[in-house]
Design a binder for these strands. Structure first.
Lengths: 258, 258
DNA sequence: CGCGGAGTATTTGTCAGATAATTGAACGCC
DNA sequence: GGCGTTCAATTATCTGACAAATACTCCGCG
């Protein structure tokens, strides 16, 4: 009965098809990883709203043409992220959103590719406004010389970057280095937010040469204030940078898709 | 192996016994969950430092007297939390600390039961100082009436609480309600930090009647400033509360072990 | 008609064993 | 000495079976 696999299952079958079938790219992801990716993506996208019951393991197994073990491992990964909880006889139920671990790399990636990602990115940006000023103030006090060197290097690389990718990469590195230099281990995992924000926002923030110059100056002000160990000035500099970013995003946010 | 038959009968009991370690709670938990607990706990505790290789799946399987599938599901859960990464032939390698998802409920719990939890709790407390003032300021601006009701209710419950447990519960509820009222979805998952802090710190912070009264007044000041929609005053009130908490913890932190 | 309790069916949980895929390392060839 | 090949260890995947938990049904009883 499983012989006639209905391949119309569209996006779902892609992952499975790419391994079993002849056509797809065989590169990279393991089976359980791609299954977890697909299911997690669907949950975050809203295909299965919180409180609803997912198809059972056997059904997923058929849908993706993979063994039940692979499905189970994928589900266990999603359970570890608190996206769902399983119980015998009832199945896997999607957990309420407030239990999801939004700071998880994968969940964040799924959010970033789901509808409503514009709203989510604004949330991320606002969140940066909450943590980055204070974190930078801490960095201005507690940074080591090595950490300062990383920050300065990233800042220089930003200025010297010739491509948009290189500049974004250095920008990310700059902010991550500051988080690390703040000396609070709990801040470091929040770096994934910044990475996500830059990965999915970098198309908006530049193009204009003037904006780019101004942003560079703001970054340099932050670097300088951390270097001179001025926490208050550093905090304010970060605030200026963030509201500048917000302004540019706000101006360019009209085109919903490039 | 003729012992397979006898092992089969003893499986459940022995497994439960072997898993009843420091971090692995055996009561009621499923096998893969308790295995994940035990391994995760050991990793966070430092038994397997970042970069080192864990025993292979077969060895874990023997250690806990569980099937390899159960071990694999446990490992997949730890992979989902970025505590480790597996590759064929090499095994499961512990990821560097900066990749761990410290805001995960389980990871946090493992930290809270590991040596060095004193240090970690100070980190948590400092992190609260970074986010809660700003979050409360947002709450003062954006709260709905329902959210305000939750906050006020929790504040009242704190004052009316007769037991330490009840007071801690209301206290937690108070701070979580504020995070929710701030209107930024990314703040909500940080609530686990507050829960963790209170769960593992409530033994220090009270006892003294004077401190308790003072803390209550500080909480009421926060409630009032959110109610009256005064973000700046609310922010300052939170800072006062946090430094008061720090003061009390600092005074009582002499007994390094309960 | 309401209700409790036994039974049933469904789903996840756990186990065992086999085979494939991956890859670091040793080995031999040129 | 450099380089491709073989080898071995480990995870990855699949299959099939059975156990455990539990929501649901249904039947008997008050």
């Amino acid at each position: 009965m499983s012989q006639t696999t209905s391949k119309r299952k569209a996006t779902a079958a892609q992952a499975a098809e790419s391994r079993t079938g002849a056509g797809g790219r065989a590169g990279g992801a393991s089976v359980h990883a791609s299954v977890a990716n697909e299911i997690g993506s669907r949950i975050v996208r809203g295909d299965y709203p919180p409180g609803s019951i997912l198809p059972n393991e056997a059904q997923w197994s058929q849908t993706f043409n993979v063994s039940r073990s692979a499905v189970r491992e994928a589900i266990k990964m999603l359970m570890a992220k608190s996206l769902l909880a399983s119980r015998p006889k009832v199945g896997s139920r999607v957990e309420p959103r407030e239990r999801w671990n939004l700071l998880d790399r994968d969940v964040l990636a799924w959010y970033a590719t789901s509808p409503g990602r514009e709203t989510f990115m604004r949330t991320v940006q606002e969140f940066r406004y909450i943590i980055e000023p204070e974190a930078t103030a801490f960095a201005a006090v507690r940074r080591s010389d090595e950490q300062m060197a990383e920050i300065s290097k990233a800042c220089q690389d930003m200025g010297a970057a010739t491509s948009l990718e290189a500049r974004t990469e250095a920008d990310t590195r700059f902010h991550l280095a500051i988080l690390r230099a703040a000396g609070n281990d709990l801040l470091v995992p929040l770096g994934v937010l910044i990475e996500s924000a830059f990965d999915h926002l970098f198309r908006y923030v530049t193009r204009e040469g003037d904006d780019l110059d101004h942003a560079q100056k703001l970054h340099e002000a932050i670097e300088r204030n951390i270097r001179l160990r001025r926490p208050d000035a550093a905090r304010n500099a970060v605030r200026r940078l963030l509201s500048n970013t917000d302004r540019i995003i706000g101006a360019n946010q009209a085109p919903s898709d490039a």
